[in-house]
Design a protein around this nucleic acid. Structure first.
Ligand SMILES: [Mn+2]
Ligand SMILES: [Mn+2]
Ligand SMILES: [Zn+2]
Ligand SMILES: [Zn+2]
Lengths: 144, 144
DNA sequence: AATCAAATGAGACGAAATCTCATTTACAGC
DNA sequence: GCTGTAAATGAGATTTCGTCTCATTTGATT
């Protein structure tokens, strides 16, 4: 586990415990789009006694420290990602398909927003909603 | 209730029922950021027998038709908004504060993404995450 | 090693969402 | 206006997810 992240915890006054190390390890390793249950399962692979409550508590802690953040995409519940950088999705509101794209104009807004609102921006989420190519065709197709 | 939306339902082969009209009416009237419980309560003010399951079923239906969509902001559960237009938030990952801003560069990307992926884009969500002015100061403050 | 607040895990609890199924209803066809 | 029929509904059971409680453990400091 990255000593850098461990120091972030320690310097904020938190204890370095096996469950916290396990959750950090899971996030660090997998990184993207794990939900709390999956994080729990993988953390238990590392430290079997890890409890559900502790995973939720740790995720809240890491969120407050700006190390991870929850993301809600599609219908499923929250998933956690590292709190740095951007995420960009095209979401079909009919079939739920999700496409990722990379190039993004949001970065150009960050400086101005930081100045205007006094925020220190760490990441962003840009999602476009609509109908994918497949669902465009069926657009007028009827009920079940 | 807007006859235009009613026709969208009818033409898609769905029946026009009192609960569906009630939910549509609520969304149309209030529009922003109502959660399923609030929608249920307001729909019951219009059509008292309306059941919870039907509200969920109707919201799913309207989502598939691209009339509404769920949005997840902060910690609270999903809320529903009309599926047109953009939403722009600055979210403090420490205290949860949410600021809205209007001017947005995302529209300029829509045409290109539509061409590249064959999507028909209806709306977007742009969220920046970071620390608000207040929380920037306390950044290194310790644990509970 | 001793101390002590912080952290933990088991399980109770609560809220939110889904599922089941018997009943009702919208509406196309007459 | 009736009728037949599949679609839609609502009550309540059930599941899923997340939080809370509290007795016990443990990391960090001295
Ligand atoms: Mn992604
Ligand atoms: Mn908004
Ligand atoms: Zn689609
Ligand atoms: Zn803040």
């Amino acid at each position: 586990m990255s000593p850098e992240l461990i120091d972030r915890l320690r310097e904020a006054g938190y204890k370095i415990t096996p469950p916290r190390l396990a959750v950090l390890e899971v996030i660090q390793r997998e990184g993207e789009h794990l939900n709390p249950n999956e994080i729990l399962a993988q953390a238990q692979a590392i430290h079997p006694q890890t409890g559900r409550a502790t995973v939720y508590r740790t995720l809240e802690l890491l969120t407050n420290l700006g190390i991870v953040r929850p993301i809600y995409v599609g219908d499923s519940g929250p998933t956690y990602i590292r709190a740095e950088g951007g995420h960009h999705h095209l979401v079909c509101s009919q079939c739920g398909r999700i496409l990722d794209f990379e190039q993004c104009v949001a970065d150009s807004m960050e400086r101005e927003l930081e100045a205007r609102f006094g925020f220190r921006i760490k990441s962003h989420l840009l999602e476009f909603y609509g109908l994918c190519a497949d669902c465009c065709g069926e657009e007028t197709t009827g009920a079940s």
